[in-house]
Design a protein around this nucleic acid. Sequence first.
DNA 1: TGAAATGTTGGGGCG
DNA 2: ACGCCCCAACATTTC
Length: 459
Amino acid sequence: MAVESGAPVIPVFIRETSGRDPWSPGAASRWWLHESLVALTASLAECGLPLILRSGEVLATLDELIAETGAQAVFWNRCYEPYAIARDKTIKNHLTARGITAKSGNAGLLFEPWRITREGGGSYRVFSAFWRACRAAEAHMRPEPRPTRMRPPENPPASESLTTWNLQPKSPDWAGGLRDTWTPGEAGALARLDRFLERAARYAADRDRPDREATSRLSPHLHWGEISPRTIWNRIAAAAAAGRIPAADEEKFLSELGWREFSHHLLFHVPDLAEQPLRPEFSEFPWTACEADIARWRRGMTGFPIVDAGMRQLWQTGWMHNRVRMIAASFLVKDLLAPWQVGAAWFWDTLVDADLANNAASWQWVAGCGADAAPYFRIFNPILQGERFDPAGDYVRTYCPELARLPASVIHRPWEADSATLREAGVRLGQTYPAPMIDHGKARRRALDAFERIKSSAA
DNA sequence: TGAAATGTTGGGGCG
DNA sequence: ACGCCCCAACATTTC
């Protein structure tokens, strides 16, 4: 849009520092944002364009930029979070009233959240029906072509220096594992997609296996708009049409894009999704976890290897395999009886793919209070889940190295290993690795009892 | 996109 | 050969 007119283009990134956004980026997100802006600056420089960095209240900052440059038009990509919607609406009204063209577009979602509606209006609360409606809806899946020539500004406005934003951790620098794991930016995103397409034929079979590299790991790139879901959709569909990916794997992967759409659809229609349970009776749920229990969960010291491996993968790499997210989240909410908002807040701070819609919808799903949610009585058994999805224990060995020498037969239940096995593996429970912080069987029954109490109040 | 408890079935050991 | 019992394997129900 901005390019077609032939006028000079001034790419701008404004960092919101008004303090009004209730969900400003967490620590891992800030690291990603820094790296992503470095990559974007380099990418734009290849086209001869500067990236102007500003911080402040967004509308006031835009007014300053317009005054400095005489800009006639402002274009941006829509963000569908409640705060951003309200803010951008104000901006659009303000600019339009000033006689300045203000246009936003959608590169972040496949379907506009307001376009997919139930028969007779209203938004969906069940994924399968929502996704069926999406698949039936006409959608422009082709991404816009990359602009070829963009006219740079003759006198670009001043830019702030990225380093003064202090987005990266300094003392201590905990971002080493993130740097080793990720390449933020569009080029990194496209490389991830290429690598995923090579193994997408095993997606349906291996996607639940955290010990294998089976998922796309595109979530942070998607969140930051470094790649569009349309680009991903097209590449997957093309590979499937060419016979390189079986239809079952294609469908399974596209439906995961569908869950992402569903989450954004939900947040759009339920703006307090990140704060309040979708099922109101859960407001009365008797959460009892103490801060010490929650701290053990955060640090990956629960004594349940699959949970601890996941929490440490999160801490080290800013990401956790989806299957393990479900297991770790179920443990926090159901075994420890901690409110799902506590877990969501930790993920918000530590995930490089932290996304308000996905995070809120997924935590509510696990807790049983969300849309199309797992019923509350579905309680993951961390031992069985570990044995089923990390059968050799290799995922645990990677992130809990103190357990690495345990045989697969006991690696998910080290407290049941006989003393000789523990000794040979160099494991001393309670010293080198924690004893389980809770009896899962008892915790399960306690959770079901707690659930009974809100069930009666709901009727 | 669970797991545990409970119910059912059928093969085989054994008197 | 027959009935009885045990229990693994599978199915269904319950949480």
